[in-house]
Amino acid sequence: MTGRWTAPSWGALPRRITLYRTPGGWRHSILTETGGRLCGGLSAVSADASDTEARSAATTMLERLALDFHGTDVDISWHPSDAPDTCNGVVARREAHPD
C-alpha cells in the first residue's frame, strides 16, 4: 500500500449533502454525481451542536474527500431547509482562476 489515496471504484464526486440532527448526533446523506448515496455520521459533532458547527464539520469533510480522492477543490453552498435541524448543501468543483 502506498502513502497516496486513490479513488475507490464508487468514487464519484459528491454533488449534494443533507445534514440532519438525531438523538445520537448529526448525520449526513451525500448524493454523488453518478447517483450514488453515502450516509454516515459527523463523529466530531455532538447532537447538541449548532447547525453552524455541523455545516462547518461537513464542509471540511467534503473538501478533504474531494481533494484526497478526486484531486480537486470544491465549494459547498448551504441553503435553508423547511425542516427543523436539517441543512442542505450543494457541492461544486471550484473553478480554476487563471494567473
Results as ranks from 00 to 15, higher is better:
residue 91 V to G: 00
residue 46 S to Y: 11
residue 62 L to H: 03
residue 32 T to L: 00
residue 6 T to M: 14
residue 80 P to E: 09
residue 51 D to T: 14
residue 96 A to I: 08
residue 70 H to L: 03
residue 28 H to R: 15
residue 62 L to C: 03
residue 10 W to E: 12
residue 25 G to P: 11
residue 50 S to E: 08
residue 44 A to G: 01
residue 47 A to K: 01
residue 69 F to L: 07
residue 40 G to N: 07
residue 15 R to Y: 05
residue 88 N to E: 09
residue 99 D to I: 04
residue 52 T to G: 05
residue 93 R to L: 15
residue 98 P to H: 13
residue 80 P to C: 07
residue 50 S to Q: 02
residue 95 E to V: 09
residue 61 M to L: 08
residue 22 T to N: 06
residue 86 T to R: 01
residue 55 R to G: 02
residue 58 A to D: 02
residue 5 W to C: 15
residue 95 E to M: 11
residue 5 W to F: 15
residue 47 A to Y: 01
residue 57 A to W: 03
residue 30 I to L: 15
residue 65 L to Y: 06
residue 9 S to C: 09
residue 89 G to T: 08
residue 16 R to P: 03
residue 18 T to A: 13
residue 69 F to S: 00
residue 92 A to F: 08
residue 10 W to P: 04
residue 89 G to C: 11
residue 83 A to F: 04
residue 34 T to H: 13
residue 30 I to K: 07
residue 87 C to K: 04
residue 45 V to Q: 12
residue 25 G to V: 01
residue 69 F to E: 05
residue 13 L to R: 12
residue 40 G to Y: 08
residue 80 P to Y: 04
residue 79 H to Q: 10
residue 77 S to W: 07
residue 13 L to C: 03
residue 61 M to R: 01
residue 50 S to C: 07
residue 50 S to L: 06
residue 4 R to C: 08
residue 8 P to G: 15
residue 8 P to Q: 12
residue 56 S to D: 14
residue 63 E to Y: 02
residue 62 L to P: 05
residue 31 L to K: 14
residue 6 T to V: 11
residue 33 E to K: 13
residue 82 D to Y: 12
residue 6 T to F: 11
residue 8 P to K: 09
residue 32 T to M: 03
residue 82 D to V: 14
residue 73 D to I: 09
residue 71 G to A: 06
residue 69 F to K: 07
residue 26 W to I: 02
residue 90 V to H: 09
residue 94 R to T: 00
residue 1 M to Y: 04
residue 67 L to P: 02
residue 63 E to R: 12
residue 7 A to S: 03
